[in-house]
């Protein structure tokens, strides 16, 4: 059987919030080591990959690999019933389960709610993501990245990201004119979560649809920092760490500059 007990249900709520607007139905693959999820948006421009290792759970048991086809809207309805400090237990049968049980327990043990979510059949392409050497890594505050994506959305549909030696520049343009926001590599680091790190091998200049980046920033509550990995001719990677026990990575295909 598959059984996973998460002490802080709030984490599962945050994970679901960060994937559900991008991927409606997702395959949650469970094995002895971790739960993984990979899904693409309907236009096959963006992909989300989530990894949550067994050590994130207070109790984790997976006798046989099992794949749960989750409708994220249905799962979200259940998790809306959970408080952040509720314990969440996921349970499913071993072989081709057609449903998954979720049990919510209040911290003081005085309230238990249980739900059964019907699993859905999902025929979706799973993509193999090659190991890539990126030309630039930018680590910054996740809140700042969210702010930049939101602010630039007022000016255009796309953002041009340019990395040079010490700087990363986010630019957008449209009918109102042009907006540029430049972040400079932090000279001193007082608080790691507020600093900017630009690690550059080669300069990059790429353009991406802001609509998707704004969806990616739904993961902001998961981590104080975000890492952008960029290479010319490769999808952008936007990574949020889930503590020491996993990550959410978003991949976004670039726009071809005119």
């Amino acid at each position: 059987m598959f059984e996973a007990k998460l002490q802080q249900g709030g984490l599962l709520k945050k994970i679901l919030e960060s994937v559900k607007d991008l991927v409606v139905d997702g395959l949650w693959d469970c094995d002895g080591a971790a739960i993984t999820l990979q899904g693409m948006d309907s236009s096959h421009v963006a992909l989300v990959e989530m990894l949550l290792r067994a050590e994130a759970f207070e109790h984790y048991r997976c006798d046989r690999n099992v794949t749960l086809g989750m409708n994220h809207n249905h799962l979200s309805k259940i998790l809306k019933c959970a408080n952040n400090d509720d314990i969440v237990i996921l349970k499913a049968a071993d072989q081709n389960p057609d449903s998954c049980s979720l049990i919510l327990e209040s911290k003081n043990g005085e309230k238990t709610s249980d739900f059964v979510v019907s699993l859905v059949r999902i025929d979706t392409d799973q993509l193999g993501i090659p190991e890539t050497e990126y030309s630039a890594h930018v680590k910054m505050s996740s809140g700042e990245f969210q702010r930049i994506c939101r602010d630039l959305s007022q000016f255009g549909d796309a953002v041009q990201i340019t990395c040079s030696k010490q700087d990363v520049k986010f630019s957008s343009s449209g009918e109102t004119g042009k907006a540029n926001i430049t972040l400079t590599h932090s000279a001193t680091v007082d608080k790691e979560e507020e600093s900017v790190t630009v690690d550059l091998k080669e300069p990059v200049d790429l353009t991406f649809a802001l609509r998707f980046l704004n969806l990616f920033t739904k993961a902001t509550p998961i981590s104080d920092t975000v890492t952008l990995s960029l290479s010319q001719e490769a999808p952008l990677v936007v990574e949020y760490k889930i503590g020491d026990s996993g990550h959410i990575r978003y991949f976004l295909a670039p726009k071809i500059q005119e």
Partner: peptide, 14 residues
Amino acid sequence: PSNQTKLHSFFSQK
């Protein structure tokens, strides 16, 4: 928009 690339141009199907 037509200038948007797709992920399949970069990643192969598993």
